[in-house]
Design a protein around this nucleic acid. Structure first.
Lengths: 152, 152
DNA sequence: TTTTATTAAGACCTAATTGTCTGAATATGT
DNA sequence: ACATATTCAGACAATTAGGTCTTAATAAAA
């Protein structure tokens, strides 16, 4: 919706790495299994992330991938742009009209502009470390909702 | 971004029809030329719109397509759903996590929920008649910005 | 040094989306 | 009735996104 499937997988993988927070590399196969991502496909996406200096790959036995810098210095928009390419220079008109701009707006221009900003904010506001922490929270809540605490 | 290219073309075509506001059908070739849409492709999209009772097609000489009901009873989301199919029953998690819900939210859940609502609002708030009126406005502004009024 | 486990690289395949072409159906004007 | 102008229908082609496979490079452990 906001980004490609590849970018979605990339986000998931990098959140996984941030969760693990391990100094040693982690095998792609393990990440792929955890998130149900086709393993080879994730390997390919990882290459892109390595090229964009978001991941470091370690070959050979006990190899794998790890974050190229601390999780609190990585933001979702960086991941999305690495995988899907940079955002367009000129903002696209949402209904594809020519010469749509603030001064010559299409009917949806102003509303869309606000939404676009909100999306940018959503993807740029929190770093991977924060996000990982909240995913862990979510996991705990999930467990609780399947096995609610009861008086025995 | 929010819908397919086909849906974008469909919106453009239907706004064109709303602008013309003609009781007689209008040739697809004319609409296609006006918006630079591949003519045959627009013809195919029109078939879909006819099936979904948004357009009426008139065959033969002086034929063409016209809106199936008054422009002020047509909304963008109707067009998008006709072309791209209905929206998913269950809202998708923006980072693709399982069991993402209000009570067990992913890190982006609440922000994304608001944005999703805003998008829905954008596509459902105004009818084609209003939108067409504002596109006409935009045209006039465009002309003005190319040929500004000056004192002679 | 050989075996084993891993990523790198890129060719390859598949499915969905976008776009094109052709012939039939249909309506109008002559 | 016939020529003409149009949509209808669906096969077809091109492009893009998503996914798989194979071989090589590399590093660690035996």
């Amino acid at each position: 919706m906001l980004y490609s499937k590849s970018a979605e997988y990339a986000i998931q993988a990098m959140i996984y790495l941030a969760e693990e927070n391990s100094p040693d590399p982690i095998m792609i196969s393990r990440i792929a299994k955890a998130y149900n991502i086709p393993q080879q496909f994730l390997a390919k996406i990882s290459q892109t992330l390595v090229k964009h200096r978001l991941l470091i790959a370690v070959r050979g036995r006990n190899g794998g991938v790890k974050l190229a810098r601390p999780a609190n210095e990585i933001y979702l928009n960086q991941i999305v742009h690495a995988v899907d390419g940079p955002p367009p220079e000129k903002e696209q008109c949402v209904i594809g009209l020519d010469y749509c701009s603030d001064s010559v707006p299409c009917p949806l221009h102003h509303k869309w502009k606000v939404i676009r900003e909100d999306i940018r904010e959503m993807l740029g506001a929190e770093d991977l470390a924060h996000l990982a922490k909240r995913v862990i929270n979510k996991r705990e809540q999930m467990v609780e909702s399947f096995f609610p605490k009861v008086d025995l």
